[in-house]
Amino acid sequence: MIGNMLEYYNMTKKNNVEIIYTGALWAGGIEGLGSTLRRQMEFEELSLSASQSVFSVFVELMNNMLMYSVEKMDIEGHPGVSKGVFVLASKQKVYFAQSGNMMKTENVELVKGRIDYLNSLDKQGLRKFYKEKIRQKDENEGSKGAGLGLIEIAKRSNEPIIYEFTPCGEDLTFMTICVKIG
């Protein structure tokens, strides 16, 4: 176990990883990691609009994982603590934000369809779609953000959202989302 550290370190270096986080995800944890992320972008002297974009994608990816990860941790007094992994890599002020979490296979087509649709829209189209969605009444409580988070993510990136769905057993699929910013 302990001998792997150099290997991990070299791997993160090779992939230009700035931040990697895995384990428990909860609202307060997002705050903590968020302020670390902000500080790091300050060190790199990123413009406000660039750092806001990275931060926004980070928050929406984390909130998505909190909501949709099927791996929940059973901690007394803390319902809804989820598991997932978040990686932020950067090269010459271009950022790659990635999230990974386990989801129900039955929802894969729905999520894929949503992302494919967003990827087909241009900036104006996204802005219009966002406005349509934000005015919609929530159809069910289970979808708190009504898919707004994904639209916000798409708005902050100039390139299509990349995804990968890896089946893990019969009912579960590991979902990876990668967003390029800047």
């Binding site: 931060f55 909130n63 934000i134 708190k144 953000g145 988070g149 916000e152």
Partner: peptide, 12 residues
């Protein structure tokens, strides 16, 4: 200075 998408919906 910043709000997420769920806050945007609420604000609107």
């Amino acid at each position: 200075t910043y709000f997420n998408s769920s806050t945007a919906k609420l604000l609107l």
